[in-house]
């Protein structure tokens, strides 16, 4: 079948890019370079999967192909947390902070915020997902404004430390954090697994999903929690890559032209790995680390979106 062949091709490409990234120009210092590259590839696979999975599902729940989960304010909250640490304790503190502690603090705060937001919105009379987005965007803007305000007040040298965390980067991923992230992801995956069968039906819209016997509100709430956890973990691990999810989810839809989430999700994950591994390769070998990967991802994503818009493709 055509879809299977496309998937195979993506799988091969993802493997090829990862291998290329691992071994290209590895030189004589194999024992030093290889483990470090391995950590990066692992981080690429973890975050790539988290972001692709959560964006595809978020778009299905909202029945909207131009939304991304970071719209509920998680990225801005992450920036606020980093800025606040520097603001209160100084830049050295952020750099020296025990990695695990910092990670748990960031993930914890982001998930907590998401839970509070969901609780607030779902308790309201007007319980719908667009209302959730609206409140999320307002919170996000609020967080960004406070961050900007604090950034204005801190010392320019310290600001550059904050600035580093504004862009996603795989260059200094910490290997202790990979383990925790992987465990959180696997647990989340186990929790999510029984709900995967609902996704195809949810894509038909809320009314059809209810008609077909899905406990809609409960399932949506659970998915949102899963999405919040995954986005928080990947953000805390490498930093915000807002555009990646939007890019890979749309390419997956475009490429597979199907409603089946088995293809869409796996496809998006592979595309995400291809993009990140390719992007990281370019960052390291073409630009010799002079630009962060999120710049490349956003550039490619932006061009792709322009293309979509120009084509006036009504199928997204």
């Amino acid at each position: 079948m055509l879809l299977k062949r496309k998937m195979l091709l993506l799988g091969l490409l993802a493997t090829a890019f990862s291998v290329l990234f691992l071994f290209w120009d590895i030189g004589t210092a194999f024992g030093y370079v290889f483990p470090r590259r391995l950590v990066k590839v692992a981080a690429i696979i973890l975050t790539g999967s988290c972001i692709a999975f959560s964006t595809v599902i978020f778009q299905t729940i909202t029945n909207n192909r131009i939304l991304t989960p970071s719209l509920i304010g998680l990225d801005s909250l992450y920036m606020l947390i980093q800025t606040a640490i520097v603001f209160v304790f100084g830049g050295r503190q952020l750099a020296m902070m025990e990695n695990r502690f910092h990670f748990v603090l960031s993930v914890g705060l982001m998930v907590l915020f998401a839970l509070l937001l969901f609780r607030l919105v779902f308790r309201m009379e007007q319980r719908n997902i667009y209302f959730l987005l609206l409140i999320g965007i307002i919170c996000g803007t609020f967080f960004s404004s406070i961050s900007s305000f604090m950034q204005m007040l801190i010392d320019p040298n310290e600001f550059s430390i904050v600035q580093d965390s504004m862009f996603a980067s795989f260059n200094n991923v910490n290997d202790d954090l990979l383990g925790i992230s992987a465990i959180i992801m696997i647990l989340t995956g186990v929790y999510a697994f029984p709900m995967l069968k609902y996704l195809n039906v949810m894509a038909l819209g809320q009314d059809q999903a209810v008609n077909l016997g899905i406990p809609y509100n409960k399932i949506v709430r659970r998915w949102l929690i899963i999405i919040a956890v995954l986005v928080s973990v990947s953000t805390a691990l490498v930093g915000p890559i807002t555009f990646l999810g939007l890019l890979v989810a749309n390419v997956a839809h475009q490429l597979f032209q199907t409603y089946r989430h088995s293809y869409l999700i796996i496809g998006a994950v592979l595309i995400s790995i291809i993009t990140l591994a390719g992007g990281q390769f370019i960052v390291e070998h073409l630009f010799t680390f002079s630009i962060p990967i999120s710049v490349i991802v956003n550039f490619v994503g932006g061009v792709y979106f322009l293309y979509l818009l120009l084509k006036e493709n009504r199928s997204w």
Partner: peptide, 21 residues
């Protein structure tokens, strides 16, 4: 919900979706 869906079905007035199906 699942039992109810075997007893009672509903089709709304308009059913527009953007889905490749």
């Amino acid at each position: 919900p699942n039992d109810l869906a075997k007893e009672l079905s509903i089709l709304k007035q308009s059913n527009h979706i953007d889905l490749r199906i």
